[in-house]
Structure formats: C-alpha cells, structure tokens
C-alpha cells in the first residue's frame, strides 16, 4: 500500500495518528534490557556499549540506540565527522531507511496500514518573525507540546527518555521527560530561501561529489547543513537539517536525538526535499557502486547499517513511491 505523507500542520488526522503511534511505541516493552543489548552488540561492534542503568527498553528506545550506534561508526577512509549515516552521501538514503522502519512500526501499533509519517515544513515557520517561531502551532499542546523545558503537558507528556547521549557515549538513565531548549543555540529556523539555495535555485547541483564529506559543495551537504552560503560576520552557522536540530536543542542536540518525535518530522521534511531534488534531476545517486575513491558504506550498492529490520542499500530506496508519496513537493 502506498501511503501519503502530509504536512503535520495541515492535517489533524495525520498528526493525531502519528502521535498515537509514537505514544504506543514509547510504551511498548521491546522484551530486552540494556544489558541484553550490550550482549547482542559485544561481538559485532566491539568498543560500543550502553553505559549506566540496567533497565527494560521500549521499541521507541531501540530507534534511539540504532541512530546513536550508526553515528558512532566512522568510514574508511575516515574524514572529519563522516560516519555511516552522516557527513557523506549516505545521509539521505540511510535516514530514508530509518524513517521507513519507523513508519512500518507506526502502522503496526496503530493497526492502520494507511498511517504515514507526517513532515514539518520548517521553512514556513522560518518565515515567521523570530520571536514567534518558538510558539508556532507545532509547539502547542495538541501537537508536540512546548518548545522549551520539560515536555510535561499535551500528547507527549508521558514520553520518557531512557537513553541519552553523554559526550560520545550512550547512557541508560532514570526515565525522565523529553527536554527542549529552542532558540538557545541559534535564534531562527531555516527559510524557504535556504531550501532554494540547497536545491541550486534551478541551476544544476550534483547530489554529492568528491570528497563525499562535510566540505563537498553539493545538494546533500547543503541539505545536511554543513555549508553556510552567507556567514554572518565571518561566523559559520548550521543550516537546514542541522539548523533544525540546533534550534530545537535539548534532546535534539546529541546523537540520541530520535528521542524527540520532532526528529522524525524534521527528517521527513529532509526526505521530502531530497524527493523534490530527484524530481528535477532524476533518481540518481553518487558515488556509484564500486567507485574506488569513495568511502565504504556510502556507495550506491553498499549495505546500510541496520539494527531494526533487514539492511537495505541506497539503490533500494532511491525510488520509494511504492511505499509512500508526499502530498506536496513544492518545497521552496
């Protein structure tokens, strides 16, 4: 079945089904503890483990673990900040796979095969006056709850964080509410103009290019947010995807960011922008399979790191229209 991903602020039904699914997954005992997980990973990823408390985990927590673990795996050859999900071309397909797995789980727990991840078109909110952005409709009680402090009211009031990033480590902690800290580290969200720049504003912009890293001037890197087209006072700022993480702050800051459901809304919009780019440029991806100069784990037919469900390859997810479509690809 092909589902339709909608703007969370344009469909109360899509919003409520998503939140129903989030709450259900966050309450569902996955049948394993942090100690069990360390046992599963001891041989396959030596050196990586969860620190802290022994406790049972939920299905929601396991997505946090998956993201954090993948982010901890550098590539060969290594480049600054590049890992097997970020800082290189695989950023787009790896997160597409991650979202597909979450969407399948939302469908399962809602018992509704038409449940789809919604997206947050943050560029619309980025067009608001900066003072109004933290109180935009997404942050009201009927949506995600407040943008600052502990989330203790609204639909997500019962969400409990059990795994959190501490430096480069993942810690199992006493369950606590979700935390946000909007505007503390950066004042404003990305804008429609930023999205048009990432897309090349009608000019030809490659999906990615050598050295396939955080310095590459190409669509993926603009979208991920490592390039700043207009530094203020010579100071670089995070852009697009990165800027949303930094703007929300709190639990969106460390590698455990999938704790916050807004992670999925952000990445769904990132995926939508990638889909729009492919609408202009075709379903092309670089680096091609077997490119000897490209990093392992980032090429077209390299397996993507999977902890939940089977591994896919970038080539498997370039065309996902059999699984989902977006209601609107006018992204900029």
């Amino acid at each position: 079945m092909t589902v339709t991903r909608q703007n969370i602020l344009m469909s109360a039904a899509a919003r409520d089904r998503f939140l129903d699914g989030v709450v259900a997954l966050a309450q569902e005992d996955a049948g394993m503890t942090t100690s069990d997980v360390n046992g599963f990973l001891a041989d396959s990823v030596p050196g990586y483990r969860i620190h802290g408390k022994v406790q049972p985990l939920t299905t929601w927590d396991l997505f946090v673990l998956w993201h954090h673990l993948t982010m901890s795996l550098p590539t060969t050859p290594s480049r600054p900040l590049r890992n097997l999900a970020h800082g290189g071309p695989v950023f787009c397909p790896w997160h597409r796979m991650f979202l597909l797995r979450m969407e399948e789980q939302l469908q399962r727990v809602t018992g509704d095969a038409s449940t789809a991840l919604p997206y947050w078109d943050w560029a619309i909110d980025g067009g608001r006056h900066p003072a109004d952005q933290p109180s935009a409709p997404l942050w009201q009680a009927d949506a995600l709850g407040g943008s600052s402090g502990d989330v203790v009211s609204g639909r997500l009031a019962g969400l409990q964080v059990r795994l959190e990033g501490y430096g480069s480590q993942l810690w199992s902690v006493d369950p606590r509410p979700l935390r946000r800290n909007a505007t503390t580290d950066i004042a404003t969200l990305p804008t429609a103009g930023d999205v048009r720049w990432a897309l090349g504003e009608g000019a030809d912009v490659d999906f990615d290019r050598s050295q396939w890293d955080a310095a590459s001037d190409a669509f993926r890197n603009r979208l991920e947010g490592w390039l700043d087209p207009a530094p203020v006072g010579g100071r670089l700022s995070p852009q697009l995807h990165n800027r949303v993480h930094v703007w929300v702050g709190g639990d969106m800051s460390p590698g455990s960011s999938p704790n916050d459901p807004v992670f999925y809304l952000n990445h769904c919009n990132v995926d939508r922008i990638w889909e729009a780019w492919m609408g202009w440029h075709g379903r092309s991806y670089r680096p091609v399979a077997g490119d000897p100069a490209a990093p392992d784990g980032h090429k077209l037919d390299d397996p993507l790191v999977a902890l939940l469900g089977a591994s896919l390859k970038p080539s498997d997810v370039l065309d996902s229209t059999a699984k989902y479509r977006y209601d609107d690809l006018n992204v900029g």
């Binding site: 394993m32 997980v37 599963f40 990973l41 041989d43 396959s44 990823v45 030596p46 050196g47 990586y48 396991l62 673990l69 982010m71 901890s72 795996l73 550098p74 590539t75 060969t76 290594s78 890992n83 097997l84 430096g167 480069s168 480590q169 392992d296 784990g297 390299d302 397996p303 993507l304 790191v305 999977a306 902890l307 939940l308 469900g309 089977a310 591994s311």
Partner: peptide
Amino acid sequence: SLRQGGQGLPATRAVHG
C-alpha cells in the same frame, strides 16, 4: 537483526570516541 548484532556493519569497526 539486533539480536544478531546488526546488519550492514563495516569490516573495520572502529568506534568514535
């Protein structure tokens, strides 16, 4: 997949940090 230690992992598994 998790019970098997994950899939798609690289041959060289250095870990950041």
